[in-house]
Write a protein that binds this DNA or RNA. Sequence first.
DNA 1: TATTTGTTCTATTAAATATAGAACAGATTA
DNA 2: TAATCTGTTCTATATTTAATAGAACAAATA
Lengths: 131, 131
Amino acid sequence: MLIKIDFEAETPIYAQVKNQIIEGIASGDLVEGESLPSVRQFAEDIGINMHTVNKAYLLLKKDGFVAVHKRKGVVVNKISSMHDPGFKKEISKNIRTVIAEAFCKGITEEEFIDNCKKVYLLYHKGHKNDA
Amino acid sequence: MLIKIDFEAETPIYAQVKNQIIEGIASGDLVEGESLPSVRQFAEDIGINMHTVNKAYLLLKKDGFVAVHKRKGVVVNKISSMHDPGFKKEISKNIRTVIAEAFCKGITEEEFIDNCKKVYLLYHKGHKNDA
DNA sequence: TATTTGTTCTATTAAATATAGAACAGATTA
DNA sequence: TAATCTGTTCTATATTTAATAGAACAAATA
């Protein structure tokens, strides 16, 4: 699992780490039961502070993406256990904002939907053999 | 144009103002040539500081959503003048992150696409008579 | 027992956010 | 012309967030 941090980006480092791990899970790069690097090792690899990695791990844990074992470290959960019915409403507001900007910027419905479908296809490919 | 600020939200106030104005433009609530309230009036209406409104206006201006006239104030631009080919790439990264989380949370492709289409339909309705 | 894990604690620095008040130049209106 | 309203700019301050740093802890395990 390769993490790339953009230190110039407006997105905080801990959020970049969190997002890329979620994308790793969705794309199948990270599979159920797989251990993430320890906070110290990961921090050293990326060149950031241990506490910044820990903050990302904490949020991933809070949202059900990973579980923590005292010695094995942070382990990727089963995708089915991440499912959250309440999330749909939460994401709807976000989508409305994103599409409002896209609409004004001239991105057509076809272009936008096509982009979404391609991303979903990518993630589905990574989970062909899931239970 | 009604603005609703959530002071408990993690999204900064200036970003909430900016986003709701963009959604207002997309939905047709705000039309080309329409003036937004002055920074002072708007701040008083919402119950926030003048400089916070000004920050939102500045960003909207930078991204081409509005133009500034010294006396008329902040005026909504023509949508066609907001179009930006480079924005498509910019939004793609965002979409990948959003869908990664949606995928893990159990939102199906159909549900997601359906939601996007409904939003686009809403925005199209507000622009039936555009040039 | 020694090591590795996440976790917790205090501390500090830097940046972002939000507020406050004053003043300015340009455009418009009375 | 004089007054008014516009965004803008300036200094200032307070709060929160982000990121770093180092130390220490309990739990699990080799």
